[in-house]
Design a protein around this nucleic acid. Structure first.
Length: 465
DNA sequence: CAGCAGGGGGCGA
DNA sequence: CGCCCCCTGCTGG
């Protein structure tokens, strides 16, 4: 092995890389996410944001669309630009007076290297209480550059770190979504979503026109540490996540709890899913409801990682690609649909079955052991279509396509009134009625009306039986 | 018990 | 293929 091996190194790789990255951003080339802040829009790259912030990474993980729009509220535009500069170039110049605010923003967004507590110069990074980074940071982030310690200590290290302690005081609960934990319920308060297009409120962060007004507003609001909010809009006005700053200690706690999931108190769920049942907390609905608590996201992720290995599921979820970690897919399938498409014990057999059945087909595919077939070619016999992800079989290709959406997470039908997306057009129509108030199904025996036929049926059965 | 969403089968154009 | 209908599960009052 050592014989004849040459080490080829690109001397200017890092500099060139950074330069090209910055150029690409300048030209808005390959940008695949837009960050909106104070009415301005910043086309950037998921890759960069994910690299520099697990916070963004998680957002993208849970936002399986090609070009999401992230609306940052209560983050100063200048700070954001500085942070972008920092992320793309690895350094940024900032006025000392603005440093505290910038650090604060960096903490909110968990920018690696900036949002770290001011510790003594550590050669060994302790995962002590004050360390807010994941231990996984150490491996995932190649260069966790920290702000020079002098700078932080210059500008009140306590300020940037301990200033959030006041936020622990009761605040007007911007975490209002904590109450309505179900997207279904959210839809009743669709006034939140109702006016994405014409936002005349100040909190309509998407309003790119009200630039100045918002700018003034936020600059004033930044003097006081207000809970920053983040909205994630998928495609146009589809998915919205609001996240708030929990304060430093809160963040650290969350990060900690996100690490050792066992202590979150949701270990029962974890056990349940890890136990092979494949039944997990519903993931997809969670994606469409604002979850301010990253620890809650960390749990499914942990399950995913436990089952499929790091990032395998994300790849699968986002691009519909088949990861090699097929077992993880099983678990996720169960968690996603809630309704098992197959008996859990039967599933693995089913995969093998497909491989065995379509032996000639399987040889065409890169992973003969697993059935990574394209959707259209998975026919076992003459007319049946088999799902490459599970044991589902149907004679209709449309059924298969529709079914595969449950695996890929693709939801082609977007509600015009809210971020809800549906896998089936019919389901969307049904959902839209929750906005329009239409109740087409009326009971013939009483004044009861319902939006869903099934509801009426259930009503009749219960009352007029 | 009602509202809502996920997912699948059936039927007709 | 598109639409309709159905069953089912989850959630909150």
């Amino acid at each position: 092995m050592a014989d004849g091996m040459l080490s080829l190194s690109w001397n200017n790789h890092r500099a060139t890389f950074c330069h090209i990255l910055a150029t690409l951003r300048e030209k808005e080339r390959y940008t695949d996410v837009t960050v909106a802040c104070e009415g301005k829009f910043y086309p950037v790259h998921k890759l960069v944001l994910s690299t520099c912030s697990e916070y963004f990474e998680k957002i993208f993980e849970n936002t399986p669309c090609k070009h999401p729009v992230i609306v940052l509220k209560d983050v100063n535009r200048c700070d954001l630009e500085a942070l972008f500069c920092y992320m793309y170039e690895g350094a940024v110049s900032v006025a000392q007076s603005n440093l505290g605010r910038l650090i604060k923003a960096a903490e909110v967004l968990r920018i690696k290297g900036l949002a770290v507590p001011d510790e003594p110069p550590i050669s060994d990074r302790r995962t002590a209480s004050s360390h807010h980074h994941h231990s996984s940071d150490d491996r995932s982030s190649p260069h966790p550059k920290r702000r020079r310690r002098e700078e932080n200590s210059h500008s009140h290290q306590g300020r940037s770190q301990s200033s959030p302690s006041p936020p622990s005081s009761p605040r007007p609960s911007p975490l209002h979504d904590g109450g309505d934990s179900h997207p279904a319920q959210r839809s009743r308060s669709d006034s939140q979503w109702g006016d994405h297009g014409a936002t005349d409120r100040e909190d309509g962060g998407m309003d790119g026109v009200a630039d100045d007004r918002l700018g003034d507003h936020s600059t004033t609001s930044h003097s006081a540490p207000t809970p920053p909010q983040v909205e994630v809009m998928v495609d146009e006005t589809l998915v919205k996540e609001e996240m708030i700053d929990q304060g430093d200690t809160g963040q650290e706690d969350m990060m900690d709890s996100g690490m050792d999931y066992g202590s979150v108190g949701s270990d029962s769920r974890l056990e349940g899913s890890a136990g092979g049942g494949g039944e997990e907390d519903h993931m997809l609905p969670g994606k469409y409801e604002p979850k301010a608590n990253p620890s809650q996201q960390a749990i499914p992720e942990a399950v995913v990682e436990a089952l499929a290995g790091p990032s395998g599921m994300q790849t699968w979820l986002g691009g519909g690609e088949m990861p090699s970690g097929f077992s993880g897919l099983e678990g996720y399938t169960g968690s996603e649909g809630g309704q098992d498409l197959h008996p859990p014990s039967q599933a693995p057999a089913a995969h093998q079955l497909v491989g065995a059945e379509g032996g000639n087909e399987a040889s065409l595919y890169p992973l003969p052991g697993h059935t990574t077939t394209s959707t259209t070619t998975t026919t076992t016999s003459s007319k049946t279509h088999r799902c490459p992800y599970c044991s589902y079989v149907t004679i209709k290709t449309t059924n298969l396509v529709r079914h595969i959406h449950t695996h890929t997470g693709e939801k082609p039908f977007a509600c015009p009134h809210c971020p809800f997306r549906a896998t089936q057009e019919d389901n969307l129509k049904r959902h839209v009625r929750t906005h329009t108030g239409e109740k087409p199904y009326s009971c013939t025996l009483c004044p009861y009306r319902s939006r869903q036929q099934g509801s009426l049926k259930r009503h009749v059965w219960a009352h007029h039986n």
